[in-house]
Nucleic acid binder design. Structure first.
Length: 309
DNA sequence: CGTGTTTGACCGGCGC
DNA sequence: GCGCCGGTCAAACACG
């Protein structure tokens, strides 16, 4: 059964708050700018709707491909993946944007104890300019780079970072360009931060390559890999942003029906998590503030509607 | 001069 | 035991 995407409404309602301090002329300028923004918003919405349609089509293709692959797997008893001396670090799946991302292999899943104490690992895909050679992902935390390596399975170098916001923070991050789509950076996070979000995220960056906060936050793919259960959460910022949650196991077994409640739990967890919501909300507010719309009220809706059944 | 980045060397796990 | 490979260290370097 194909999973219906769970939607996160990220639409912005720009309500102008009347202010006696704004004179008539300034008010007209403000309204004109607001009209321009609404028009631009409409255009972007149409573009994103088109992207979403493409995504649905792509997902359909993926489903067909997976069924075909499973059929071959069953027939041959082995997966038609070229054998390597060392097992590949991960197996590929496709995310919202049709690019591939890494997931834990079935073998690793079986090997892993059910109640392992190993640090939580998650992966995040971040879209960047393909010509941009930087390996920096702005995610709300402060990182110190401590190494870089070219790995065997990917000609793009892999950068190693440690969280430097808190000295005792054990979190590490690996960033590498996607093998299939160089416009995506794949960030692998290990461990859990023992402190809050790095609030300076919203200040203009100095040493870190300057990129749009919104470009780096959304759209993105978050793939918490919590022990046995690996899942993707794909977010796309549009008026009906789709949050597509699926267990990576479902890439192989599309008919797994038993995990809906757990999936819903995962789906709702990001919007309940202040570490996720606060940077997002602040980035939106910052984006508006930077354009001097001090009198524009902002309602950021991040409610999670009931999943479609 | 302090801080962060770069990069070659080193270490340990894994497969043969 | 050996070689490969990913991950980490740390000295050198760049930059503000």
């Amino acid at each position: 059964m194909e999973m219906e995407p769970t939607c996160v409404d990220t639409s912005l309602n720009l309500n102008v708050i009347p202010s006696p301090h704004i004179d008539h002329l300034a008010g007209e300028v403000l309204f004109e700018e607001l009209r321009r923004l609404s028009s631009e918003n409409k255009r972007l919405t149409e573009t994103l709707n088109h992207l979403c349609e493409s995504y649905v089509a792509l997902q359909k293709h993926l489903s067909e491909f997976s069924q075909l692959r499973n059929a071959n797997f069953d027939k041959e008893g082995t997966c038609a993946v070229p054998s390597l001396k060392r097992k590949p670090e991960s197996e590929n799946c496709v995310n919202l944007f049709g690019t591939e991302c890494n997931t834990i292999t079935e073998e690793e899943t079986f090997k892993r104890p059910k109640h392992s104490t190993e640090p939580k690992v998650s992966k995040v895909l971040t879209r960047t300019d393909a010509s941009d050679t930087g390996l920096y992902v702005r995610d709300g935390y402060q990182w110190r780079k401590y190494g870089q390596k070219v790995t065997r399975d990917n000609p793009s170098p892999r950068a190693y970072f440690k969280c430097s916001y808190a000295p005792s923070c054990p979190v590490k991050k690996k960033v590498q360009r996607s093998l299939q789509d160089k416009s995506f950076l794949v960030a692998t996070y290990e461990g859990k931060h023992n402190h809050g979000v790095f609030r300076d995220l919203l200040k203009p960056s100095s040493s870190i390559q300057e990129t749009s906060i919104m470009d780096n936050y959304l759209p993105m793919t978050v793939m918490p890999n919590d022990k046995l259960d690996t899942m993707n959460i794909d977010l796309c910022l549009c008026n009906r942003a789709q949050t597509d949650i699926r267990r990576c196991d479902d890439i192989k077994e599309q008919n797994d029906r038993g995990s809906n409640s757990k999936i819903e739990e995962y789906a709702s967890s990001p919007v309940k998590d202040p570490d996720f919501i606060m940077p997002l909300a602040e980035a939106v507010v910052h984006s508006l503030n930077s354009q001097s719309y001090k009198q524009v009220g902002l309602n950021l809706s991040l409610g999670l509607p009931e999943p479609h059944h």
